[in-house]
Computed example of a mutant assay.
Amino acid sequence: MIYFEDLEVGARTEFGSYEVTREEVLEFARKYDPQPFHLSDEEAAKTHFGRIAASGWHSCAMTMAVIARYVVGHEQAGLGSPGIDELRWLKPVYPGDTIHVSGTIVDKTPSRSRPEIGSFRTETVVTNQDGVPVMRFTSIVLIRRRPA
Score class of each variant (00 low, 15 high):
Y94T: 08
E27R: 15
A45I: 07
P34F: 04
V126P: 01
A45N: 10
S139A: 15
R30M: 10
Y3C: 12
S40M: 05
L7K: 14
G80R: 02
Y94P: 02
V9C: 08
L142A: 08
P110N: 08
T104K: 14
I99W: 02
E42H: 11
R30G: 11
A68S: 09
V93M: 02
T21K: 08
E86L: 10
S102Y: 00
F137E: 13
S81H: 01
G73T: 11
E27W: 01
S102L: 09
S59P: 02
T21N: 09
P95K: 06
K108Y: 05
I105T: 15
T63L: 11
Y32M: 13
F28N: 12
G10S: 13
Q35D: 14
A148K: 15
S119F: 10
R112G: 13
T109F: 00
R136S: 15
A53R: 09
F49Y: 15
A53C: 07
P147V: 11
T124W: 00
E23C: 03
P110K: 14
V101Q: 06
F4G: 13
V134N: 07
H74F: 01
V20F: 00
E86Y: 01
E24I: 07
A54H: 03
Y32D: 10
S111R: 07
I99D: 01
R146F: 00
L7W: 05
G16T: 09
S113L: 05
D85Y: 02
H100E: 10
T13I: 15
G80E: 03
H74V: 06
I52M: 06
L79S: 04
Y18D: 04
G103E: 10
A65Y: 00
V71K: 05
G73R: 08
P115R: 13
P115K: 13
V25L: 06
M135I: 07
I140W: 00
V134Y: 02
F4T: 12
G56Q: 11
C60Q: 10
T109L: 08
Y3W: 04
E23I: 03
R144A: 11
A61S: 15
T98R: 13
H58L: 13
A44Y: 00
E116H: 08
M62A: 12
Y70I: 07
E14Q: 14
V141A: 12
M135V: 06
I2C: 05
T63P: 01
E5D: 14
V141F: 05
I117Q: 10
M64W: 00
I99R: 05
R144N: 10
F137T: 12
P110G: 08
V134Q: 09
V72C: 02
R22G: 07
V71G: 02
L7G: 10
T122G: 05
P110F: 01
P36D: 14
R144W: 00
T138C: 04
L26F: 00
A68F: 03
I117A: 02
P92T: 09
R12F: 02
H38P: 05
G73S: 10
G73N: 10
H74N: 15
V132R: 10
V72F: 01
E75M: 07
